[in-house]
């Protein structure tokens, strides 16, 4: 007993770390074995991964839904990028009221759940019966999603603008560039380079938020991935279509997050 204690005490830090790592691996193996042994695999397989339903999903509207999700997201992203830049510039404006309006906008739309905005748009025909959005249903979705995206992107872009060193503006102004030209030619190009990774992250968030389309109610041909997966899962009484929809989301988001990592990596190298 005494000998064991002394040997334990005499373990070097490296040996102790090694033992801990072995213990962690052992735990993992035990947990995996338990999962394999205890789980009802055929039931899981039948509930989530029925091959016939995977095939039916892929041939029955998956790509249309994928395309809708991409369309909704892309439109909202473009809107958010343009309006977000404007709001960011307003936020940094020397004119007080512009700053206040921009701050109020950002705080308002960042502070409420996006679904609330979608609900508001779904009900907008009640107070304004004649109101007709252009390019329905895209118009409503782009606007609802874009309004929220604008708030987030404005804050990101503002941070990017402020991250451009002051000397850049001074150099531009000392060459005789008016403030607007200096912003457009010198500050904004550098700011967008800085915010490219966080903006791509926001694009990933938008891809997922586009699933809120279900709130405004669109026709079958305009179903996005979530709405489509849910409808099919309901009619088939099986979760496989939802799993397919989930993987379809990953088809969009995984390349994007790889892209972000690459950009961050190359940004590190550039400095």
């Amino acid at each position: 007993m005494t000998t064991t204690t002394t040997t334990t005490r005499r373990l070097s830090p490296r040996q102790r770390a090694q033992r801990l790592r072995w213990a962690q691996y052992a735990l993992l193996v035990v947990a995996a074995a338990l999962a394999i042994w205890l789980a009802d695999w055929p039931a899981i397989y039948k509930a989530f991964l029925r091959p016939d339903l995977i095939l039916a999903a892929v041939t029955g509207g998956l790509f249309s839904a994928l395309w809708m999700t991409i369309s909704y997201t892309a439109g909202a992203f473009v809107l958010g990028l343009v309006a977000g830049t404007v709001v960011a510039l307003m936020r940094l404006s020397p004119v007080g009221p512009y700053r206040w309006i921009a701050s109020a906008y950002i705080e308002f739309f960042r502070g409420l759940p996006a679904i609330l905005v979608f609900i508001a748009f779904s009900l907008i025909a009640i107070p304004f019966p004649g109101l007709q959005m252009p390019w329905e249903p895209y118009g409503t979705v782009w606007l609802a999603l874009g309004l929220v995206a604008t708030a987030y992107m404005a804050e990101t872009i503002r941070a990017g603008i402020q991250a451009v060193p002051k000397g850049q503006v001074e150099a531009a102004r000392s060459l005789g560039m008016p403030a607007m030209v200096a912003s457009r030619k010198i500050v904004l190009p550098q700011a967008f380079r800085i915010v490219l990774p966080p903006l791509t992250n926001e694009l990933i968030l938008l891809v997922k938020d586009s699933s809120l389309v279900f709130v405004v109610g669109v026709s079958l041909t305009h179903f996005d991935l979530t709405k489509w997966g849910r409808a099919m899962a309901n009619s088939e009484a099986n979760l496989t279509p939802l799993v397919v929809a989930g993987f379809a989301y990953l088809l969009i988001t995984l390349p994007l997050s790889t892209l972000v990592r690459r950009m961050e990596h190359s940004a590190e190298k550039a400095h």
Partner: peptide, 13 residues
């Protein structure tokens, strides 16, 4: 009026 800065301030992009 040309100006040259201590930190160069070239436009990196």
């Amino acid at each position: 009026i040309g100006m040259v800065f201590q930190q160069f301030n070239l436009f990196p992009h």
